[in-house]
Design a protein around this nucleic acid. Structure first.
Lengths: 174, 174
DNA sequence: GTCAAGTTGCAATCAAATTGCATCTATGCG
DNA sequence: CGCATAGATGCAATTTGATTGCAACTTGAC
């Protein structure tokens, strides 16, 4: 998280990296290389996923898609199956939080970590190069070949702490 | 992870910190303060949990307990309920991995982080003070009050990498 | 011992995720 | 273009971990 962006904002958009091939191209290559087909459902989901600014879960995505009976409907199993394909293709990252699977962009976005507020349950993103470097050093020592890292710092965000102060103040006045 | 302990060993036991009150005492206080009772089931589970050297999930714990019909049987819902109490009492930490809830000791053990091997799915523990310090600094900048941190580094462990080399060698010989 | 509050086990339930399978469709080939 | 078929989809059912309602039981204060 850069100095100028403090305090952390929920779902803050990290700067998008320059990528030569679009996610769509990358996924097309992925399908090609595995003999998989370019279907209406995959197109629908690819578009829907790239409308998401922040992390999302399968249900949140489905809510934004056409309902059953409407045009371009995609069934729940297909959503799950296709999200898995996106992860395999390197377009999305998947991680667990509170027993649910969350997805976030992984292609053309810098790797980042999270601050989770235990009160409002919001998830804040931040990026820190020193952290990546340090993790790299730790892994090197452990002779561990890093593929990705996921740091979730749990605590209380600034908004919730401000609310505390306000509440305390209110109590003091009584 | 210290230099001497390399490479990481799965379920390596971290040095236990000196604590003035035993976990049992701490849990007794917790029960007392909430008007909860000291039951056979809670005793059974407390003992079982403190036999665990490493992280475990509800099922792994249940496997080690008496079966239904035997003495000191504890039902599944009670296991779940009681593990939740242990977390609230600060004896255990809970976290998700692959959609399952894992538990690990949180009282009298140093805070640590994890290396997850994506091939053998083993979870290695390590402790690094510089990492804690850096996370503290990042949080300070974000005006975020840290309660705990959880870093999971995903990759390939040394054992699995060794196996790769062996496999490649075998192929080369053909 | 008595009693009320707290706890337990059972069975049922919940929710997310996954699977089997019949049907449908994208794509390569003629 | 139309056909053949491998691959994909939707439905319904299932799996799995976790949770809940409730009647029966237990603990601990009096």
């Amino acid at each position: 998280m850069t100095e100028s962006s403090l305090p952390a904002r929920s779902g803050m958009t990290l700067p998008r990296l320059d990528v030569s091939r679009s996610p769509q191209d990358r996924f097309a290559d992925f399908l090609q290389s595995r003999g998989m087909r370019d279907t209406r459902q995959r197109q629908t989901l690819l578009a829907a996923v790239f409308k998401q600014q922040h992390h999302f879960d399968a249900d949140q995505l489905i809510e934004q898609l056409p309902r059953r009976g409407q045009q371009n409907y995609v069934s729940r199993p297909t959503v799950y199956r296709t999200l898995g394909e996106f992860v395999e293709a390197g377009l999305l990252k998947k991680f667990d939080l509170d027993g649910r699977c969350l997805y976030e962009h992984d292609y053309g976005y810098p790797e980042h970590d999270h601050l989770l507020c235990l009160e409002c349950r919001r998830l804040f993103e931040f990026e820190n190069d020193a952290l990546k470097k340090l993790v790299g050093e730790i892994a090197l020592q452990a002779q561990f070949q890093v593929q990705s890292q996921r740091l979730i710092v749990e605590g209380v965000c600034i908004d919730c702490r401000r609310n505390h102060r306000r509440e305390r103040k209110r109590v003091d006045l009584i």
